[in-house]
């Protein structure tokens, strides 16, 4: 009931919000296209600090998060979001070139909902995003 209401509200307010955090223009470009095509409202951040600002302001439902970034890294962003009562609901998907087992475990241990390694399949990514936002 609650979930339906929330979904209705979102639909009412227009679109579901998604934040893309990456410093690679080519990657941002593709993700932005994919998300917009699905009808999400897209926000873009180039580093961790910027991402945290936007998350606090816009409270997106889902964040596509890179790890290796200048200043605040992706792990830190995830830790802060999942540690906050207010933001805990936010779904976090790591998109990282760091592909070692230990990297993935670390990412999930911070409470991330999904960890995808680069290069990723766009089709797979979209399926997972829809799953998470359903």
């Amino acid at each position: 009931m609650n979930a339906d209401l929330r979904r209705d509200e979102l639909t009412l307010s227009g679109m579901m919000k998604i934040l893309i955090v990456d410093d690679e223009p080519g990657i941002v470009m593709s993700l932005e296209f994919l998300m917009k095509k699905e009808g999400y409202q897209v926000y873009i951040a180039r580093d961790g600090a910027e991402a945290l600002d936007i998350i606090h302001q816009e409270q997106p439902q889902l964040v596509l998060l890179d790890i290796m970034m200048p200043s605040v890294d992706g792990y830190e962003v995830c830790r802060q979001v999942k540690g906050s009562d207010l933001l805990r609901q936010t779904k976090i998907v790591f998109l990282s070139a760091k592909s070692k087992e230990s990297d993935i475990e670390k990412g999930l241990s911070y409470g991330a909902d999904l960890y995808l390694t680069k290069p990723f399949s766009t089709r797979n990514l979209m399926a997972k995003v829809q799953e998470l936002t359903a």
Partner: peptide
């Protein structure tokens, strides 16, 4: 190096799929 190689490949792959 692997990381650095993955980054452009990611863009190339994603854009090509699109």
């Amino acid at each position: 190096v692997t990381h650095e190689l993955r980054t452009p490949i990611t863009s190339i792959k994603a854009l090509s799929e699109i």
